[in-house]
Structure formats: structure tokens, C-alpha cells
Amino acid sequence: MEKEMIRTDASPKGKNGDHVIEIVSMNKWFGSFHVLRDINLSVREGERIVVCGPSGSGKSTLIRCINRLEQHQDGIIRVDGIELTEDLKKIDRIRSEVGMVFQHFNLFPHLTILENCTLAQIWVRKTPKKEAEALAMQFLEKVKIPEQASKYPGQLSGGQQQRVAIARSLCMQPKIMLFDEPTSALDPEMIKEVLDTMIELAQEGMTMIVVSHEMGFARQVADRVIFMDDGQIVEQNEPESFFNDPKSDRTKLFLSQILGH
């Protein structure tokens, strides 16, 4: 119910203005290897997109292009109206508006949880330390681990670390959150706590692109599921139709493999 409300909330705003991410005929090569082929994708504000596909299909590369951890060689990527080019200043602006959560958390092991969350605020946003800490605590409470603030990442479980990573990104108050297989390095009993955090985030209307094979999560929160194979977007649909009635053979094959026997 609530999900529906947000979706209708977010979409009808307008036709052009509310596309926060626009990718047009984008191509990318690693050396001579054509890793992303003719990618076209638009994401509206508040939309939740789940990307799936076999390993090596270019999912990570695609979302890394969106915050320019990778550079594309051809086509256009526009984030929040800003086109991604060589321009350093624009890249910095994009990066502060796009949060990213990684498969292996990538917390800074030499800093406490609190310092992990305040570092970028202090050095990039130039927020005074007190304010930064207050905001960090607020987000640590949101991901339900304020009591771990003074510990080091190595002392936390995988699920807790991933929630800290989410809080760390949120501290920069991004407009868009990218998740690259956030639960695939976790032990089974910890997957739920991370997914719950993400669901909560989705319910608040955050624009999210999530690379994940958690089909339950996709069904529950996704507005669209995108299937990638071989560097291309092969199929895209609403979750129900995507899972129940896949159109392409490649999608069918993939779904049969991940959904089991």
C-alpha cells in the first residue's frame, strides 16, 4: 500500500525534469573488450530499480559509471541534469549526490564507526565536527547500531558493517543511492537486517539502483527490474511480470538458474 503511494507520489511530477539519471546510447570498453553495449536507461526521482544478470554481465560497471568510478567512452550519462565529462568539479558534485554501497562494505578499518561516518562530511562538506557527529549518530540510529559508534569496523559482524556503510553514504545526504550486491558477501542470517534497512530507505522515497539477486526484495520494493547479459540490457519490466512472465529466452534461462530446480 505504502509502496504504491510513494510510487504515485514520485512519478507524476513531470516529463523531463524529474529524470535524475539519464543514460543515452552509452558504450564502454575495457581495452578492446566492449563491456557495456548501447545502454539506454532513465531513472525518475524516487524510483527503485533492481538490476540482475549473470556474473560478468556488466552490472557493477554500469552503476560505477553513474558515479564515475569508471569512465564511459561513448554516449551520454546525465545525473541530476549534470552531464558526466572530464570536468573534475562536476564529478565532485555528482559524487556528493550519489551514494554507493559496495559488496565488501569497504569501511575504513583504521577509523571508528563514527569517524567513518563523519570523515567525508568534515573534509568534503566542511561541516563542523560537532554537527557531523550529530548527523552521523542520527543515521547510525536509523540503521540501528548507535551503540557501536566507538568500535572499529573489524569488531563488527558483516551485517553490521554493511549497515554502517549505508549510514556512511547517507551522511552525505545523497539524492541517489547505488548498491552493488550489498548482501552477497553476507552470511545468510545477516541478509535480512541489511535488506530491512534498504526497504526502509526505499519507503522513504530514496532513488535507488540496486544490483541484487534477492528476488524477494525485488518483488517487494522494485518499480522496475532490469536484466543484463553480455553488457546489454536484455529485458526490463515491473517485478511481477518480470518474474512471472519473462519474455526473452536469456531471462528465462537465468531465472530458472537462480530460482532453483
Binding site: 568510478l69 559524487r95 568534503v124
Partner: peptide, 8 residues
């Protein structure tokens, strides 16, 4: 990657 993703 995490650092530059945060804008450092």
C-alpha cells in the same frame, strides 16, 4: 573507491 565515492 569508497573514498572517492564519498567525494574525497
Amino acid at each position: 573507491e569508497a573514498a572517492s565515492g564519498l567525494g574525497l
